[in-house]
Structure formats: structure tokens, C-alpha cells
Amino acid sequence: MSKAKKTEFRPDDFVVYPTHGVGRIVSIEEQEVAGLRLEMFVISFEKDKMTLRVPTARATEIGMRGLSTPDLVERALDTLKGKARVKRAMWSRRAQEYEQKINSGDLMSIAEVVRDLHRNDDQREQSYSERQLYEAALDRLTREVAAVSGMDEAGAQKRVETVLTARAA
């Protein structure tokens, strides 16, 4: 079983890495680490100008996954239409939960953060940390929507914003 798992991802595939979002596998290379020969996925996160090397044997266990299905993207966008659910916990506690959701790499959880932290022009100001979390979640969501639907990020952002503003109306 584990042998089959290794070849699940191929060069040029888009993948989602939990703590970094959407990246593209540039290559699969062998590298010697502490005397062991390891096969590594070389993943490029172009927007962040970052390259990550992930051992192929551990990719799934780390939480790396393929892009969501178009169906899941639609469900995530539908989540944005829902009413914001804000717990009455202290901000530090909520912020921690939002961060965990963003770093889970789970598209539905990320969409929930966007929904819960989205502000319309007529609503109260966001604190700096709220804005940071909102933008991180929005960026992750937008990048995956773009990759799944084969559109550029600007188009994906417009699509997400349209859903968010329609909710407000």
C-alpha cells in the first residue's frame, strides 16, 4: 500500500501543503540526509518565492494532498454565503483556532475562517491580527480556487469577493 502512495503525486501537479497552501511539484529528486538516501518532492510556492523539499514517503502523513475537487470548491464557496459564526471566547483563543483551521490545509475549514472574519464596509473595523488571519485564509482559498478552476488568481479573487458581497446584500 505505502509503495502505491508514493507515486500519487507527479511533477507539475498542484498540491496543497497544510502550512503553506497551494504549490506545484517541480521535480522528484534523491537526496542524502544523515547517510540515508531519500526521495523528495521538490515543491515550489511561486508567490512566496519558496521551495520546499518533502520526503515522498512522508508526504501524505504530513498532510500534503492533491487539489480539491471542483465540487468541494463549490461547497467551500457556499460556506462563504452562510452567516458568520463567532464564538464568545476571548480573541486570543479564537485567533488560535482560526490559525489551526488555516494551517490544517482543509479547504472547508479555511472557507469558514474567511466567512467568520469577513467584514463589510458598514461593519466595525478589524483589528490588525484579525485582518492578518482573514487575509491569510482568503489567500489560501483564492489560490486553491484559482488552481482548481484553471483561472488566474485575480479571477479567482473576483469570484470569491462576488460570493462574499452577495451574502451581504
Rank of each mutant, 00 (worst) to 15 (best):
R115P: 05
K81A: 13
V15A: 08
Q126T: 10
A34L: 10
A137W: 10
V22C: 04
A59M: 03
T162I: 10
A169M: 05
T79C: 09
E97D: 10
V145W: 03
R167K: 14
M90D: 13
V163N: 00
S149D: 12
S44K: 13
A147Q: 05
A154H: 08
A136N: 10
Y134H: 15
R119T: 06
A89C: 00
K5V: 14
R24P: 07
R159F: 07
V16T: 04
A136M: 11
L67T: 03
V15P: 02
P55W: 08
L72S: 11
R159T: 13
L141T: 07
E29F: 05
Y128T: 12
V16D: 02
S68K: 06
V86G: 02
T56Y: 01
V33C: 00
V160D: 04
L117F: 10
F9K: 07
K101A: 13
S129H: 15
A76W: 06
D139K: 15
G82M: 10
V114D: 02
R75G: 00
R37Q: 12
V42G: 01
H20F: 11
T142I: 11
R88G: 15
E29R: 13
E30L: 02
A168I: 02
E30T: 09
V15K: 08
S2N: 12
M50E: 11
M108L: 15
G21R: 02
E61K: 15
M1A: 11
M1Q: 08
R24F: 09
A169V: 08
L107M: 01
L36N: 11
R37P: 00
R24Y: 06
T69G: 03
V42M: 04
I102M: 03
K3A: 10
I43N: 02
T79G: 01
Q157V: 00
R53V: 00
A111T: 03
Q31G: 03
S2I: 09
V54N: 01
R94Y: 09
L117Q: 03
S27V: 00
E135W: 12
V163Y: 02
E112Y: 09
T69K: 13
G35N: 06
I25Y: 04
R140F: 15
A59E: 03
P70V: 08
R124H: 10
E153L: 07
A166T: 11
Q126G: 07
S44I: 03
D116W: 09
L67N: 07
L133D: 05
R167C: 06
E61I: 08
R131D: 12
F9P: 12
Q96G: 09
L138R: 14
I28L: 02
S68M: 07
Y98Q: 04
E130G: 06
R65E: 06
E46V: 14
Q132I: 11
G35S: 08
V148C: 01
G35I: 06
S127R: 12
H20R: 11
M108T: 11
G35Y: 07
V73W: 06
S27F: 01
R88C: 00
E125L: 06
M90A: 15
K6L: 14
D152M: 01
V163P: 01
V163F: 04
M108C: 00
L72N: 11
A136F: 02
F14I: 01
D152C: 01
D139P: 00
S129P: 01
A154P: 00
A154T: 12
F9S: 08
M1Y: 07
